[in-house]
């Protein structure tokens, strides 16, 4: 049972090597261009907004690491994003730690939570898995209202940004943006590496045919747990960075609607692709930004896009482009 639509792999063997080389070159050209855009962007668009978008890009990529590689749909990823946001916010605001340490603590918390939730949820597969992750995520949401340090509805407000490495003032918009950009690129490269490693291939194998992988001797659940924890950790990194950027960690970060948003980002951009979630995250964030002023109902529009994505283009934007390019 394949969980997601993957692109067909029926290229003829003879042409394969050559087309692989061209495809490689295209990839490099594309990433070089993307890097240029990333560097130049803050001079054209408000850097603070861009930095926030980058955090969601990383969040979407982290989420998609789980869905795209092993085909597990998590409905509770906001739990990792939000927990890290809270922990990092607390570390910045109350303990007065610098951003590096706060992000590390937040990410570590998400990692621990990821291992725990992963251990429980991979005991069931398919739809049960999705339902369990949602229920676990809701627990964290309730906790965010109960724990003393999260400040209930208000969340952690006016979180100070501090100085990066004790040298660079993060209140400078450009420093802030490039810090977020470095975090994003590092996260993306890690995901790229994971996806293209032997480990990633095994995950794809589990997605395509779990019984066969079991019969080949792979301990399937260990692999699932590992990728679940990795995905949660990276989602945590995104959440911790987001707190520093927007200076706020609130219950919205752990709410199921945030988990829904990140699913939409991955879906809209293309679940079967690596770069798709980035495109999806940029579009969804832009949409929310512009709709917030227009007075139009954001939820309705998001719901409608969801339905359209499912019914009309399940490959997502990048998936469709890849299909047109014949890759």
């Amino acid at each position: 049972m394949s969980a997601i639509d993957t692109k067909p792999t029926d290229t003829k063997p003879a042409a394969e090597a050559e087309s692989f080389a061209t495809s490689r070159k295209l990839d490099y050209a594309f990433y070089a261009l993307a890097l240029l855009v990333l560097i130049a962007a803050p001079f054209f668009v408000y850097p603070l907004f861009l930095a926030k978008v980058l955090c969601f890009c990383l969040f979407a990529c982290a989420f998609n690491l789980l869905l795209g590689s092993v085909g597990l749909l998590s409905l509770g990823h906001a739990a990792f994003f939000g927990s890290a946001a809270y922990i990092a916010g607390h570390a910045l605001k109350v303990w007065g730690l610098p951003f590096e340490l706060a992000a590390l603590l937040g990410t570590a918390a998400a990692a621990v939570l990821g291992v725990a939730f992963g251990y429980i949820s991979i005991r069931r597969s398919g739809l049960y898995f999705a339902m369990i992750t949602l229920a676990l995520g809701q627990m964290i949401y309730f906790l965010a209202f109960q724990l003393p340090f999260t400040h209930a509805e208000d969340g952690l407000t006016a979180v100070p940004r501090g100085k990066l490495l004790g040298l660079f003032d993060l209140n400078n918009n450009l420093v802030l943006y490039y810090t977020a950009a470095v975090v994003f690129v590092a996260g993306y490269l890690l995901i790229h590496r994971i996806t293209h490693s032997t480990f990633g291939q095994i995950l794809n194998g589990i997605r395509e045919n779990q019984p066969r992988m079991i019969s080949l001797g792979y301990r399937v659940n260990d692999y699932k747990l590992a990728v679940f924890a990795l995905s949660a950790t990276l989602a945590g990194l995104a959440g911790a960075t987001k707190t520093m950027v927007v200076q706020l960690a609130s219950p919205v970060d752990v709410h199921w609607a945030t988990s829904g948003d990140v699913i939409l980002m991955a879906l809209l951009g293309g679940v079967g692709t690596l770069f798709g979630p980035v495109v999806g995250a940029v579009l969804v964030e832009m949409l929310q930004f512009y709709l917030a002023d227009s007075g139009l109902p954001i939820q309705m529009v998001i719901g409608a896009i969801f339905v359209l994505c499912i019914l009309v283009f399940r490959q997502g934007i990048v998936g469709e482009i890849n299909r047109i390019l014949g890759r």
Partner: peptide
């Protein structure tokens, strides 16, 4: 299709209907 799509489709419908009523 895979069951996941049914789940996501109804999620979208939920957002749409809920959003309409909130609006």
């Amino acid at each position: 299709l895979d069951h996941i799509y049914g789940l996501l489709l109804t999620y979208g419908l939920m957002m749409f209907i809920m959003g309409a009523f909130i609006y």
